[in-house]
Structure formats: structure tokens, C-alpha cells
């Protein structure tokens, strides 16, 4: 975070100096960057945070051995990933059972997530052509949720509409059958499990990069300086003067 603070203070400094764009050479820039100290442990924690949140169990384990960075119980990541994977593969019932084993509170206190999982189950039944089962399921399990909440009812209606079309892939609600719907549901479950474990649902690294881009954009208005355009290589590119 100190990198960000330096950016901001430089920003203020430049703002005070003049209205015309200041040019900062690569030399000056690198000198300034060298003055910024970042602790190795902080870097490691960021990496670990990313691995754990995104669910890279093995990588996290190896990283722990190599760097000695602490993390939450790895078993919980494995469980969480199993749930996520089950939803991604369309085994929603299996996913629900796994979540309930992990912590029964998650679905009991999160009606929206529970509804979305049940909705996904319905979608899978329709995808597999189990029409009668789908109807029965919608009636038994989903209709009562719709009575409790108006927005659920609307979503339910949209989902059941899938049954009305010959060619589901070209119908107005066809996107429900898309793989992206599974991914959406999967990431919702993933986030809920993370929250229940008092863990943040998003890794910190992407927001740090967002801040970098934001700060660069701010600085662009005041100065020309070596910029990072490609985040994956993080190469400093010479200012266009």
C-alpha cells in the first residue's frame, strides 16, 4: 500500500508545481521507485491471499513450505473448491450437501444464495430433459420461495419459461442454460463460504492493480512519466514526449 501512498504524494507535489505537464525521465523515475521499500513478508502474504482466495490448494501448500507464510486451514479450501467444482459441473444437489456439511448456517441464513442454487438445480433438470421432474421440483421447492420474495418469483418464472421453447438455445431466456450461469452461481457460493469463514471474498491483488491503474490515470493529466501499460509484464515504458 506504501507504493500507492507515494503515488498520491507525488501527485500532490506535481499539482502544486505547475499546470503544464512535467516530464519525468526514466532515470528519475527509477530512482524514486528505488526509494520505496516493500517488505518481502507483505508480498508473500499478498500472494498467499490470492492463492487461498482463488482456491489453489496445492500451490498454496507449496508456497507455504517455501516462504513460511501462514494461511487459513487448507482443508477448508479443499472443501470450498469441491463445492465450487460441483456447481460448475452441474451437480448442484451434491454442492448443496457439501455446503451444508461445511456449515449449515450458510444456506439457512442466506435465502438469496439458497434460491439461486435451487434455481440452478432446476436449470440442470431442464437441460437434461427431465421435464416432469423439473416441474415437480419447481412446484415443490421453488414456488414456496417465490411466495416469500417477489424477486425470486420473477426469476422462477423466467427459468420455467425455458420449458416453453422448442429451441432453448435461441430463446429469450436461453442464457440461463449457458455455462456462465453455472459460473455465476458457483462464485456466489464460493463468496458465501469465504464470508462464513470470516475470510474476504475477493483477493487483494486485483484491487491493488486497479489502484495502480487509477493512480496512473490521475498522474497522466499532470505529467509524462514511464508508465506500466502491460500489467502482466509490468514493463516501464518510456514517456511519449
Amino acid at each position: 500500500m506504501s507504493l500507492f501512498r507515494i503515488f498520491i504524494s507525488q501527485l500532490a507535489e506535481i499539482e502544486n508545481m505547475s499546470t503544464s505537464k512535467k516530464v519525468i525521465t526514466r532515470e528519475e523515475w527509477e530512482k524514486k521507485l528505488n526509494e520505496v521499500k516493500i517488505r518481502k513478508e507483505d508480498m508473500n502474504k499478498l500472494v498467499m491471499n490470492f492463492l487461498v482466495t482463488e482456491g489453489y490448494v496445492e500451490a498454496a501448500e507449496r508456497f507455504k513450505m517455501e516462504s513460511g507464510t501462514e494461511h487459513i486451514d487448507l482443508a477448508t479450501i479443499t472443501d470450498r473448491m469441491a463445492v465450487k467444482k460441483a456447481v460448475q459441473c452441474g451437480n448442484v444437489e451434491d454442492a448443496i450437501e457439501k455446503v451444508n456439511d461445511l456449515n449449515p448456517e450458510i444456506l439457512d441464513t442466506n435465502p438469496q444464495l439458497f434460491f439461486h442454487l435451487q434455481q440452478q438445480r432446476l436449470i440442470e433438470l431442464i437441460r437434461n430433459g427431465k421435464v416432469e421432474e423439473a416441474l415437480e421440483f419447481a412446484q415443490e421447492e421453488l414456488a414456496p420461495r417465490g411466495e416469500e420474495n417477489q424477486s425470486f418469483l420473477e426469476e422462477l418464472e423466467r427459468t420455467v419459461a425455458l420449458l416453453a421453447f422448442e429451441d432453448v438455445n435461441n430463446c429469450p431466456v436461453g442464457e440461463l442454460l449457458d455455462i456462465s450461469q453455472r459460473l455465476k452461481t458457483a462464485s456466489e457460493v464460493n463468496a458465501a463460504i469465504l464470508t462464513s469463514q470470516s475470510h474476504e471474498k475477493d483477493p487483494k491483488l486485483p484491487s491493488l492493480l486497479k489502484m495502480l491503474i487509477w493512480a496512473q490515470n490521475q498522474l497522466d493529466e499532470k505529467a509524462a512519466y514511464p508508465r506500466i501499460n502491460d500489467l502482466s509484464t509490468a514493463v516501464l515504458e518510456d514517456p511519449a514526449v
Partner: peptide, 9 residues
């Protein structure tokens, strides 16, 4: 429309 399956299992 998807084909219908057998009655409840």
C-alpha cells in the same frame, strides 16, 4: 422442447 422423462422415480 426437451423430451419428457418418466414419472417421479
Amino acid at each position: 422442447m426437451p423430451t419428457s422423462s418418466s414419472a417421479s422415480t
